[in-house]
Design a protein around this nucleic acid. Structure first.
Length: 226
DNA sequence: CGATAGATATGCT
DNA sequence: GCATATCTATCGC
């Protein structure tokens, strides 16, 4: 993926428009592709491009933690109004980070499944946080929701973080213009318990991008809806 | 490639 | 108490 394909980046970082956070998760998930996720720690800033997302939205989605309106200590952030990070622990050892969208009391969240470092400087710090890379390949540093949280040092202390605020330890910036690109819509990963919702095509990614966790050979490209 | 072990917070009974 | 989890690394073919 080169800069020519992705279009021109603004020299000065812009915040994401508020209307994007107000959308449902299903509407927001494809529109978060190409946007920039920024992590600020005492070691510096890491900027990366979002290349794969999944929508988990509403009371009826059996794949969602908030299915049926389950509002618990863990899921509380999902019920907040859009613009916060929902971070939780999975399988006892990994963290996953979501962008909460929509209105208060309507649980909508977009899982960030894969990111790509913008520069070699970003990659350097991510590799440091990540430790040993499987196969020694840099693309394995953040091609999965648990992996990217390790690479960006994201844990539950960032749950509820304000993604709209540029002074947050974790926030979003306007990234690449993807209007001339296609994206892929495919079924979500690892939710066999979700029954009729298990196969909903609510995963979105940039086709053939090396940092995407799993490429679906049968899924067709379609124009990104902007 | 597919199969599987791994380790614990969370939520429900 | 107990089943489950928006996953990853590793091993065997």
């Amino acid at each position: 993926m080169n800069d020519d394909q992705l279009g021109t980046r603004h020299r000065d970082a812009q915040p994401l428009p508020d209307w994007l956070y107000a959308l449902t998760a299903l509407e927001a998930a494809p529109r978060l592709l190409g946007q920039t996720l920024v992590r600020r720690t005492e070691d510096g800033e890491i900027r990366c491009r979002i290349v794969e997302t999944e929508s988990y939205g509403g009371l009826e989605d059996k794949g969602s933690h908030a299915y049926g309106g389950r509002r618990t200590n863990r899921t509380e952030t999902m019920f907040h109004s859009g613009g916060k990070a929902y971070v939780y622990l999975i399988y006892g050892m990994y963290h996953c980070v979501n962008v909460v969208t929509g209105a208060a009391d309507d649980p909508q969240a977009v899982l960030i499944r894969a990111v790509e470092p913008l520069t070699s400087h970003d990659a350097e710090l991510m590799i440091r946080y990540r430790g040993k890379l499987p196969g020694g390949k840099p693309i394995n540093m953040s091609n999965g929701p648990g992996k990217l949280c390790l690479a960006l040092r994201i844990d539950k202390s960032l749950n509820g973080c304000e993604l709209k605020r540029q002074d947050s330890p974790l926030f979003l910036e306007h990234g690449d213009d993807l209007t001339r690109l296609s994206i892929v819509q495919a079924s979500r990963i690892n939710i066999p318990y979700a029954e009729e919702y298990a196969d909903k095509p609510w995963r979105f990614y940039i086709p053939r991008h090396p940092y995407v966790s799993i490429h679906d050979k049968k899924a067709a490209d379609f124009p990104i809806p902007m």
